[in-house]
Write a protein that binds this DNA or RNA. Structure first.
Lengths: 135, 135
DNA sequence: TTGATATAAGACTAATTTAATCTTATTTAT
DNA sequence: ATAAATAAGATTAAATTAGTCTTATATCAA
């Protein structure tokens, strides 16, 4: 596997849409969902996440919606993933709720450290790629 | 997410075990499973995959088991992942059974190309890391 | 002030994927 | 012959992910 979730895919798409339509105009979840033919509710959740993590500003009510809060070159794909995904770790024993040496296979499994290194380098790939680069 | 499957974790562990115990000695699935306290059947499947993809040689019958067929520095983590995992793609539209331009979001989603690039670079990280490096 | 259209957020259900187990067959050393 | 191993596929169970539904709140405009 090692697959991005649909939520992350939708997040990339929604962020891209916001970036391309940021001329003072407020984009709604409905608008984006219809544009890509995906679930309105899922897009809405993605956008709510964006608002929470300060990627986008939200406006409620009629004429409400979302606008990007940063320049596309200032938003990394990593920011977007983090905004939308709670777990983003290669293995369970690499996650923060499982700090330090804790591995379900006791000290039998010694693959943790090299994987931490690879994890960092993968994160960096997404960190180095900005939203601007996918427009 | 973007998580390795347990199968892949087990594969790394099993490969590591084989590499550390390759002094003419045949390692069995049972032995490895007990050593790491994981399911015997799952380890068996991993080892069968290793045999099919020529990472290990298998010997049947009593006194049977598996031995690494290559030097640890000649086996990459990517080889191991490929051996054990059928899908190893960042997104569904990146998989081979979905060639070329086919994306469920028609031409609406334009994130495919940059993701192909990131996919390649992730693959490279695993390709550049050899089994020897996790011993 | 009411109705229409948004976001906000959480509960719930459905679908898919992954993990684990079970079963049967075959091989081979003793 | 028997015990211990691989081989391979079927089946079940568990976990995760995707998608939907519901209720509440905000805001614009007639």
């Amino acid at each position: 596997m090692l697959k991005l979730s649909k939520k992350t895919e939708y997040a990339f798409m929604a962020a891209r849409y916001l970036a391309l339509n940021n001329s003072g105009h407020c984009s709604t979840a409905k608008e984006i969902a219809e544009n890509y033919d995906i679930s309105r509710e899922l897009v809405a959740k993605v956008l709510q996440n964006f608002a929470r993590s300060d990627i986008a500003a939200s406006f409620q009510g009629v004429k409400g919606g979302y606008v990007l809060k940063k320049n596309p070159e200032e938003v990394s794909l990593f920011d977007i993933i983090l905004s939308v995904e709670d777990k983003h770790h290669l293995t369970n024993c690499l996650s923060e709720d499982n700090p330090d040496e804790k591995c379900s296979h006791e000290d039998g499994c010694k693959i943790r450290d090299p994987l931490i290194e690879i994890q960092k380098r993968i994160d960096n790939l997404f960190l180095e790629t900005s939203l601007k680069q996918i427009l």
